[in-house]
Amino acid sequence: MTDAVPHLIAPAARLHAAWLDAHAEWGPGRHEDGFGLLASDEVRSPGGFSAWVARLVADASCRYRWIVEADVVLGGIALRHGSGEFVRRAGHIGYGIRPAARGRGLGTWALGEMLAEAARLGMDHVVLVCAATNTASAKTIERQGGILEGVGGTPRGAVRRYRVSFAVEA
């Protein structure tokens, strides 16, 4: 029996076909933020996919989760730890919802879950970044308490930079 409600799960090799279906819906490229997909990842074959999933699960610098409903991959979200160059550029959390699943509040829900996880891990804040033209993502971040720190240019275009701070218990 499968659940017809969304869940956040660790990447799973058993969802190879479901992930490929989501990937195909996005179209060519590596633009599904939240999945940790690199140009060098070979995800078409079962062995390549399993190797990619194993890399994601073993990555101590990031906590990857897939948004899954009834074994359908709806999106991905990643919580990056630390303050390295990539986090400064891309933020602590990246996420993407496949086109057919957008407009259901999944991004807002998943972001809320990962913000709670960040707080449980003892992070005092997270930085989130989205394209300046991505009003849907900006609204998602703002619904979860994101405070706009500014809009600036990058080699990839203008981005909005947000911060979510967590209350520190005394």
Rank of each mutant, 00 (worst) to 15 (best):
I9N: 01
I9F: 00
I9E: 10
A12G: 10
A13V: 14
H16E: 07
W19T: 14
W19V: 12
G27M: 06
P28S: 14
P28W: 00
G29I: 09
R30W: 08
H31K: 10
E32C: 09
F35D: 03
G36K: 10
L37K: 11
A39C: 03
D41V: 07
E42F: 01
R44Q: 11
R44L: 11
P46D: 09
P46Y: 08
G47S: 11
G47Y: 00
G47R: 09
W52Y: 15
R55C: 02
A58F: 00
A58R: 14
D59P: 12
D59C: 09
A60Y: 00
S61V: 00
R63M: 03
R65F: 00
W66K: 08
I67P: 07
E69D: 12
V73N: 11
V73K: 10
L74H: 06
L74W: 03
A78Q: 14
A78H: 04
H81F: 15
G82R: 10
G82V: 08
S83R: 11
G84F: 02
E85C: 01
E85T: 13
E85K: 11
F86H: 11
F86E: 12
V87S: 04
R88M: 06
R88W: 00
R88T: 01
G91C: 02
H92A: 04
G94N: 05
Y95A: 05
G96W: 03
G96I: 05
P99D: 09
A101K: 07
G103Y: 03
R104A: 11
G105C: 09
L106T: 10
L106W: 03
W109G: 09
A110I: 02
L111W: 01
A119Y: 00
R120S: 13
G122V: 05
D124M: 04
D124P: 15
D124Y: 01
V126F: 02
L128I: 14
V129N: 04
V129R: 05
C130R: 10
C130N: 13
C130Y: 04
A131I: 00
A132T: 09
N134W: 05
N134I: 07
A136Y: 03
S137M: 10
K139R: 15
I141G: 07
R143D: 01
I147A: 12
L148K: 10
E149R: 15
G150P: 10
G152L: 11
R156Q: 13
R160Q: 11
R163L: 06
R163D: 00
V164K: 03
S165T: 14
S165V: 12
F166K: 12
F166H: 10
A170L: 13
A170S: 14
